[in-house]
Design a protein around this nucleic acid. Structure first.
Lengths: 110, 110
DNA sequence: TCCTTCCTATAGAATGTCAACAGGAAGCTG
DNA sequence: CAGCTTCCTGTTGACATTCTATAGGAAGGA
């Protein structure tokens, strides 16, 4: 009966992916690595979470993709933010800030 | 294709409930109101989310309950933190802080 | 009596994450 | 070359949690 090992708060993955793609295109595993890097190892995104998320977000029109070649000459699918994706990044960033502030205040309350 | 209205990040509800019960016992709706209050209206917990969560947390041994009478002379079930619940509050509080810090840093990164 | 408010509760749907598994293709090693 | 490892993308099925919608008892006021 061990406590479920949930790494991510549901809903934060999208924001992390959008943020990771902010500076430019990356392929799937590259996104995963970049997330690990910018969160200093706090968030580890597993393939079973990442790929469905990428497909979902492309479907939503936030990402566009093309096949290319990775740094290691492997076939890789690169993703980049669409205009809508950039907008969504801003929206979710603000949403997160609102939540984080409220939560942190609440935890300080009596 | 309506925009899903997800108020809460999954996993934050437990923490909010634990925190709300920190100062002392409350009944279900009281918990809901207290959460709304300490988060300044940012988090509104609906009954359909709250009661299953309370039952789950009591099952987990973090809460204990007893029937009593509310401020308005209604029959109400009061909840309070168990010892394990107090521990869990600390655990989840720290977890949240870790996540919030990592996330906020990540959003500031290039 | 009727209506509203307070209080608890459940069912069913939707969503997102996880563990586990699969497979192709490139490069290294012996 | 054979075998192994790493890189890369993907799927499947289980699972937990939240939401919407619905229900009903009980108190108090009109």
């Amino acid at each position: 009966m061990r406590p479920k090992q949930t790494n991510l708060l549901q809903g934060t993955l999208d924001l992390l992916v959008l943020k990771a793609l902010g500076p430019g295109e990356l392929h799937g595993l590259g996104i995963s690595r970049r997330i690990e890097q910018i969160t200093q190892g706090t968030f580890l995104v597993k393939p079973g979470s990442l790929f469905p998320a990428l497909h979902r977000m492309e479907e939503a029109g936030w990402l566009s993709s093309f096949w290319g070649e990775s740094e290691n000459s492997r076939r890789a699918k690169f993703y980049q933010l669409t205009k809508a994706g950039k907008g969504q990044l801003e929206v979710e960033k603000e949403q997160w800030m609102r939540i984080a502030v409220a939560m942190t205040k609440a935890l300080r309350a009596t």
